[in-house]
Simulated scan of single mutants.
Amino acid sequence: MSKHFEIIVGTMLGASEYVADAIAEKLEAKGYTHTIHIEPNLDNIKTDNTWVICTSTHGAGELPDNIQPFAAQLVGADLSSVNAYVIGLGDTSYDTFCFGAKEIEKLITENNGKLKADAYYIDVLEHPIPEDAAVEWFDDILANA
């Protein structure tokens, strides 16, 4: 695992940003460095650093507006050096629960990137403060890395 993490955020209302900030704090506490990308652009994100992608789902299962251009850049990209973790935020009362995160997972794996763990889908109905659940999950990831 690299010592520097690229935290990539897909958000409409800010919840994914809170998750990203909480993950960043956890990384700092463990001695890692990070860059948070609110307007992610593949040209500015190193593929040999570990990626943590925090994204919600918007509308009828789409990615948030701010991460859609990044997702388009992943199509056909060489992601063979990418190791990634995906955290999805969603609401299980919708049949498109975490479709945004699932789309990002698919784009990474279809372009030869590796998911270092199963994606973590957070149901905001069960976890109204999703950053707490995300940090607990990610702390386990770091402890076992």
Rank of each mutant, 00 (worst) to 15 (best):
T11W: 07
K116F: 00
F97M: 03
G61V: 12
Q68K: 14
A101H: 04
G113S: 05
T11D: 06
I53F: 00
H58M: 11
D95R: 10
N111V: 03
K114V: 03
D78A: 12
T96V: 04
T33P: 00
M1F: 14
G61A: 12
H127W: 10
L42W: 04
L42E: 03
A20P: 02
S93Y: 13
T11R: 10
I23V: 15
L125Q: 14
G76M: 01
Y18T: 09
A20F: 01
L42Q: 08
L63M: 06
T35S: 06
N144D: 11
E136F: 11
A119E: 04
I36T: 15
P64Y: 11
I108T: 07
N44P: 06
T33W: 01
G100P: 02
E131I: 11
F99V: 00
D132E: 15
A60Y: 14
A72D: 15
S2F: 04
P40H: 15
I108F: 04
T109Y: 06
E103H: 03
K106R: 05
V52C: 13
I104S: 01
F97Y: 14
G100Y: 01
D78M: 10
A24Y: 04
F70R: 13
A84M: 08
P40G: 13
N83Q: 07
Q73G: 05
G61F: 12
L13G: 08
N144I: 06
D21N: 14
A119P: 09
S2T: 09
I104M: 07
I87H: 05
P40M: 10
E39L: 14
T50Q: 01
N41C: 07
D78W: 08
D48Q: 14
I67E: 03
Y120E: 01
H37I: 00
E131C: 12
I23D: 06
D43S: 11
W51T: 00
A15M: 10
L63G: 05
N66E: 05
A101T: 02
E39Y: 13
I23L: 15
A143L: 10
T96W: 02
S2M: 07
I122P: 03
A117T: 02
D123Y: 07
G10W: 02
K116N: 01
D132L: 15
K106T: 02
I45D: 02
G59Q: 08
E17C: 07
V52Y: 10
